[in-house]
Design a protein around this nucleic acid. Structure first.
Length: 870
RNA sequence: GGGCGCUUAGCUCAGUUGGUUCAGAGCACUUGGUUUACACCCAAGGGGUCGGGGGUUCGAAUCCCUCAGCGCCCACCA
């Protein structure tokens, strides 16, 4: 035989990928077939493949390949996301290493660098997906900064503004002092952290009294504009209306009362710093307090902070606490556990900051999106996310869509005057100037006088359009592609971007297209290491995705990932599961070797055992196809794979092939051979979505020249299943196992034939020949009398006897135990049947079954008792 | 603080409306096995009071209450 003894993935993977790609099997164009569409969750353009991507894209590829086999027009749209903050941060750092500061160069210069960077590193991740076998339609690859994608974003912004849904607001936002941009609430992660809380004494003006506040942020005292107490707090009421003096700064501020102050917390007195706390801002607005921002954009203190001007906020905190102590204003400091908000990207501590930002009103436009999920118009898997989604959507807040960055879609707002409201919103400067002339009444207004808003849009403001914009559905609402592919079918993504992305896509689908963007969302779990820890660069516990493919082969890695990812749970990734995948590859490979090794004879004669095996496997395959289909419907992809795994390994290899396999040196009849190949072909077809490479490789070794490649073959159809035949086969398979066990226990080798006798069975002769083949046992039925010394095997309440020449005393204990168990079992069944209430309440089918159980058990007990007597 | 979910074999998990002989799967483990598909293998086997307690029911892993532990989401007090 010239087929290698074990399967070598490396040799064939790139060959097949190239073959599929060059023959355009991944490509899709609208036609008269039903489309099946997935849009990829676009990875960061400069990102590299990690385990999460691998899992996610493996599942997408499985769904796409299966749909393709099932005759759908399968279209998987790939692409990348510009990822403003992440990419800009990388470029800023790169420039810094080259000795260039962002602040020293112009926007255009910076963007040139950023595009260079993107072109150099961009799309690498897509190349990595090819290694994994992903069958995306690469001709449709999109990037969120492509011209038509950008046009969509701008168009949508203008549209929403004109609908009155976008507004500019001076609001408290999350400020990232490192990236020098705002973040949405979703981009801030709270971490528990030990800090200090400081008790600071403020003198009362014209009095010897003092008032003490508790604060974690003494550096903001320069921004204090009041001290507030609860109006019901008797301890301090006498101070109401008096003035307190800020230490160090020696400035007088009023003492006011406000319901928002919690008397229980700290001292019950709150220093009000409207510029640096959301809560304080609310109090400040109510009492018309001045707003004093004491921080620069980079997190250093500003000119309002005397000798702390220019110092970093954390350093200043330390130094101020020392100075307060020296001047006797620091009463005490305590350790304090609190949650600190940090930037998801830069890990920098977030600063609440008041600034002008652009917001999208969410309440109204999110209503249809909420309803769609509640009504199961869009289904979320696993189901638990439906509640999470509902909870968020019902409490949705306006979306801050502006970012103080350069890398992204520049907001299409054009300012023409010095007043805050002197701006227009338009797709481009030519449209803007017309609008500006009208709005200003100055028809001589020059284009050069227009200044575009410097902020860019939040990255998610482009990706929320993804399922629409990849088909150009915004710019060309009636184009053929869009009408054909939208709404898409399934979305596969991680639960961490449920709000960032999934919810907003649903909102945009209904807002701009009056329909859902996809029918189902499947959330994969997060990939963790086998100890349950999140994979991260710091821990160094994240395996190199490409190295895994190198080591095990893409098919095996795909299988390994799925084996560790049961239905949407977090998955504990362990490399040994890839080994399991590799073992599976090898198993299939060797079944192929076996089949190819046979000599075929041109004879009509088929062994009866082969005929039986064929009939059994046909039914078995059909029943498994039904199961697999059910698993797919429920998005239980791992379970579907496990079913196929067992079908191939156990049913096809261990049972079917072992039965039909000719003895060494004897040829195989062509009828059985043909069937065997057909079965292998069907197994390969259903395996193909999971293990595309090996399945295609083996298929190429058994197919006829005119046959299509596996990737575009037809998914097998299940026939009507003859369950009674499956049951009969199950009986003999149990019998075979029993005989093998008997051999094991007695130390009888397979070569020594065992003769079985029975009185109460009537097996089909072809099934008996299977027992002969696999267990080397003849079955003699309708025996008149059984030898006194015979030993019995009981299978499904049928009894088989073996003339035992060996001592059988050792088995007495086992028979006794078995008898005791069955007597107890019978007792429990009979007590049920004697229970009047049971008979009255239980459905007939249950009662019938209990009676059958009773009868079966009685027979078993009789057999066992006879055995004991002997 | 508000909401959601989880706890079943050594590990990772299935277990549909309570009822087929329901206590399961894969891996791991134990024992035996190398005559030509595969030791990346074959055959057989041993593992669980279904987190604790209580209740409903003829019947509970499944429904209800309660306690304990774990996890996620949202909000957040200086």
């Amino acid at each position: 035989m010239n087929i290698a003894k074990s399967f070598d993935a490396k040799k064939i993977e790139s060959k097949w990928y190239q073959f599929w790609n060059e023959n355009k099997y991944f490509n899709s164009k609208p036609n008269d077939k039903t489309p099946y569409t997935i849009v990829i969750p676009p990875p960061n353009v400069t990102g590299i493949l990690h385990m999460g991507h691998m899992l996610n894209n493996t599942i997408q590829d499985i769904l796409i390949r299966k749909a393709r086999l099932q005759g759908f027009n399968a279209c998987w749209v790939p692409g990348t996301d510009h990822a403003s903050i992440a990419t800009e941060a990388k470029v800023v750092e790169k420039l810094k290493n080259d000795g260039i500061e962002k602040k020293d160069i112009s926007r255009d210069e910076f963007l040139n660098y950023a595009w260079d960077w993107t072109e150099k590193h961009g799309g690498l991740i897509l190349e990595q997906l090819k290694k994994l076998g992903c069958s995306c339609d690469w001709d449709r690859t999109k990037f969120t900064l492509d011209k038509e994608m950008s046009d969509s974003v701008i168009k949508v912004f203008v549209d929403l503004y004109e609908k009155g849904l976008i507004y500019r607001g001076y609001r408290m936002v999350n400020w990232d002092p490192q990236a020098k941009t705002t973040l949405s609430n979703e981009e801030v992660i709270y971490e528990e952290q030990e800090t200090k809380i400081f008790y600071i004494k403020y003198k009362i003006y014209n009095s010897s009294k003092t008032i003490t506040v508790a604060t974690t942020r003494p550096e903001t005292i320069f921004g204090d504009t009041a001290i507030a107490i609860n109006p019901d707090d008797d301890r301090y009421l006498h101070l109401k209306g008096k003035k307190a003096i800020i230490p160090i700064l020696n400035k007088e501020i009023p003492i006011i009362t406000d319901q928002n102050v919690d008397s229980e917390f700290g001292t019950g007195c709150l220093k009000v710093t409207p510029a640096h706390s959301e809560n304080d801002k609310i109090i400040g607005d109510k009492h018309q307090l001045e707003i004093i921002d004491v921080l620069n954009d980079d997190g250093t203190l500003n000119k309002f902070t005397l000798h702390y001007n220019g110092k970093d906020r954390f350093l200043a905190r330390k130094e101020i606490s020392i100075e307060l102590k020296e001047i006797g204003s620091l009463l005490k400091e305590e350790n304090y556990l609190t949650k600190i908000g940090k930037s998801e990207r830069t890990k920098c501590v977030i600063e609440p900051k008041l600034s002008d930002q652009w917001f999208l009103k969410m309440e109204k436009i999110s209503k249809p999106a909420l309803k769609a999920v509640i009504d199961d118009n869009i289904k979320l898997y696993p189901k638990k996310f439906k509640n999470t989604y509902k909870n968020w959507m019902e409490n949705i807040r306006d979306w801050n869509i502006s970012r103080q960055l350069w890398w992204g879609h520049q907001i299409p707002v054009y300012y023409y005057g010095s007043d805050k409201m002197d701006f227009v919103v338009a797709e481009d400067i030519d449209k803007a100037i017309i609008k500006a002339r009208i709005k200003s009444g100055n028809f001589n207004l020059d284009k050069d006088k227009l200044i575009q808003e410097t902020d860019v849009l939040d990255t998610w403001f482009s990706s929320w359009l993804w399922p629409i914009s990849v088909f150009d559905g915004i710019n060309n609402p009636d184009n053929k592609d869009f009408n054909y592919y939208y709404p898409t079918n399934d979305l596969i993504t991680g639960p961490d971007i449920l709000f960032f992305w999934v919810a907003r896509m649903i909102v945009s689908g209904y807002e701009f297209k009056k329909s859902k963007p996809f029918s189902s969302v499947y959330f994969t779990g997060l990939v963790r290491d086998k100890k349950g820890r999140k994979m991260s660069k710091q821990l160094g516990n994240s395996p190199d995705a490409l190295k895994l493919i190198e080591d095990f082969g893409a098919d095996s890695v795909r299988v390994g990932l799925l084996f560790s990812a049961p239905a949407g749970n977090d998955l504990l990734f362990d490399e040994s599961l890839c080994q399991q995948g590799k073992n599976f590859s090898n198993k299939i490979w060797n079944s192929y070797r076996l089949v190819k090794s046979w000599n075929i004879k041109n004879s009509n004669y088929q062994n009866p055992s082969s005929i039986a095996a064929i009939k059994w496997f046909e039914n078995r395959l059909s029943s498994k196809l039904i199961e697999i289909d059910d698993h797919f419907k429920k998005y239980r992809i791992s379970d579907a794979l496990m079913t196929i795994y067992k079908l191939i390994w156990d049913d096809y290899c261990s049972w079917y092939l072992e039965i039909v396999k000719p003895d060494f040196g004897t040829p195989m009849d062509f009828k059985t051979y043909d069937k065997t190949l057909q079965f292998l072909e069907k197994c390969l077809t259903i395996l193909h979505p999971f293990m595309p490479f090996i399945s295609e490789e083996i298929w190429s070794g058994i197919k006829n020249e005119e046959d299509k490649p596996l990737i575009i073959k037809n998914w097998p159809k299940n026939n009507k299943v003859d369950y009674s035949y499956l049951k009969e086969f199950e009986h003999i398979s149990k019998l075979i196992t029993n005989i093998r066990k008997y051999r094991n226990q007695k130390g009888i080798s397979y070569k020594e034939k065992i003769e079985l006798f029975s009185q109460n069975t009537k097996l089909k002769s072809e099934l008996k020949s299977i027992v002969l083949k696999l267990a080397n046992s003849d079955i003699v039925e309708e025996v008149f009398q059984i030898n006194q010394n015979a030993e019995s095997l009981i299978v499904d309440s049928k009894e088989y006897f073996i003339n035992n020449l060996l001592d059988q005393k050792s088995d007495l204990k086992k028979i006794k135990e078995d008898l005791d168990y069955n007597i107890g079992f019978l007792r429990s069944i009979q007590s049920k049947l004697n229970n009047k209430k049971f008979i009255e309440n239980a459905p007939d089918s249950i009662i019938k079954n209990e009676k059958k159980k009773e009868l079966d058990t009685i027979i078993k007990i009789k057999i066992l008792e006879q055995k004991l007597k002997k």
